[in-house]
Every structure is written in structure tokens, then in C-alpha cells.
């Protein structure tokens, strides 16, 4: 029995463990792997590589994971003081996102991953939300998730998946200013974009919050189901 193969994009950071100190490491919080496994998929991690997107030919679904900021040059803006980029990830993940959209590969974007989807679809980002909304409830403090009540577009995929549940956990300082070709289907109370979809494709969903932390079966299950189809 072969489970659907779900690729998860990764961070590259200097990491320390055991005897190793600040070794360049490809990594992803294990919560993503567990969320895919619990939803019935087989996770593999996709370290950044800008050569081509042919790895997607062997994938049944894609998770664009969280992480640092997208380089503003990717949406025609100049970096602001608090923008913290990883060009190596952008060079790998924007082509993956575009290829997933072009080939109808099921894709779930999480946090940075939702922002990557927006930029891949021709959109752009707010570089520092507190400058726009006047508060820091979307990232209250280092390592602390902000709890938010979201509003979802009636009849959207995310509204259907979340049911009566409105509570989401956020940790970000950038946000989607323009979703490009994608539809905005969720907002926080302050109007910040919380969910993106493409209703014209089999499964394209981006969420600004972190469903992997609770191993949310609703969202990861929907991805795996779409990947099995």
C-alpha cells in the first residue's frame, strides 16, 4: 500500500546538536512531518535546490513550510529594515509554487508558505505588519504564538474545513498585501489576510497560521485526500 508522497520544503540554518556546533543544516520542525504522517501521507523533506522543479513529478502533494521573509525584490519592492530574507529558499520555493499551481499539484502553504503562494501568483507582501495594523498581536513576543479569531468567506474551502472553529495561532510579522491570482478567503479581526485559495484548482490552500503545531487533521487531511485523488 503506497501512501501519497508529500514533499515539505525546508529551512537551511546553522544548527547545533550533539557535538556539532552551527553546522549548515537542512531542517523543518518535526511537527510538519507528524502532521503529514497522522493525516495518512508519507512525508519527505525537500531541501532547497534551484536547478529545476522535476522533484514534483514524483510528489503527490506539496507543503510550503514556514520560515523567514521572502525577498521583496521578488515582488518589486525594496527591503525594509526588519525584513529578514533567505534568498536560497526563495530561489527554490517560488519555482516549486509556480510549478505546483501550473500542474494542479495539491499544495498547502503555511505562514511563509502562504506568502510564497501569493508572490508566486503575482501578489505582494506587507513587510512589517505592526507598521500597518498598529499592534503586534500576530507575533506577540519571540517564540509566542498570537491567538486570533478569524473570519472565513462563506462557501470557501477553508470555511468548510474549519466548521464552527474560528481560533487560529499566528506567528508572523509580514502579511499578504495582494494575493495576485489567488482568492482571499480568511481574515483576522484587523483585516490581515489569514487564508488564500484558488477555487479553480483541485487543492490550493494557504494559511497564515500554524496548523502543524496542533497536527490539524482537517487541513493536512484535506491535502492528503487531494493528493490521493
Amino acid at each position: 500500500m503506497m501512501r501519497p508522497l508529500i514533499g515539505i520544503t525546508t529551512y537551511v540554518e546553522p544548527a547545533s546538536w550533539g557535538v556539532w556546533h552551527r553546522l549548515p543544516t537542512t531542517l523543518v520542525p518535526h511537527a510538519y512531518v507528524e502532521a503529514v504522517t497522522l493525516a495518512g501521507g508519507r512525508a519527505v523533506l525537500l531541501p532547497p535546490d534551484d536547478a529545476d522543479t522535476d522533484v514534483l513529478r514524483r510528489m503527490d502533494g506539496l507543503v510550503l513550510g514556514g520560515g523567514a521573509d521572502v525577498d521583496p525584490a521578488r515582488y518589486g519592492a525594496s527591503p525594509q529594515p526588519l525584513t529578514d530574507t533567505r534568498p536560497q529558499r526563495d530561489a527554490a520555493e517560488l519555482p516549486l509554487a509556480r510549478a505546483a499551481l501550473a500542474t494542479d499539484l495539491p499544495v498547502l502553504g503555511v505562514c511563509r508558505g502562504m506568502q510564497v503562494l501569493a508572490v508566486a501568483a503575482g501578489g505582494r507582501l506587507e513587510q512589517h505588519l505592526p507598521d500597518v495594523v498598529g499592534h503586534d498581536k500576530h507575533r506577540p513576543a519571540p517564540g509566542v504564538y498570537g491567538s486570533q479569531q478569524a473570519v472565513f468567506e462563506s462557501g470557501s474551502r477553508i470555511a468548510e474545513l474549519m466548521g464552527a472553529d474560528r481560533e487560529i495561532n499566528c506567528y508572523h510579522h509580514q502579511g499578504v498585501a495582494d494575493a495576485g491570482a489567488l482568492s482571499v478567503t480568511g481574515w483576522a479581526a484587523d483585516g490581515v489576510v489569514e487564508a488564500l485559495e484558488d477555487p479553480g484548482r483541485p487543492f490550493v490552500l494557504g494559511v497564515q497560521w500554524h496548523p502543524e503545531v496542533s497536527r490539524d487533521r482537517r487541513l493536512f487531511g484535506a491535502l492528503v485526500s487531494a493528493a490521493s485523488a
Binding site: I8, T10, P14, A15, P24, T25, T26, H30, V33, P47
Partner: peptide, 30 residues
Amino acid sequence: VQYGGNDLMAGMLPMSYVRAVHATGGRAVL
């Protein structure tokens, strides 16, 4: 693993393996 200000359970591997696969014409997945 510890990275940035984080200390968490990660799926991970030193990048040296990934670079070796990519430098020799393969596509690495973990």
C-alpha cells in the same frame, strides 16, 4: 536541535549531504 532562537525537534540533516547529491547530478529528498 538549536538554531536561531529555537530549540525544537526537527527533521534534519547536514547540508553537506544535500550539496553532494546536487553536485553530482541527483535531486536530494530527506
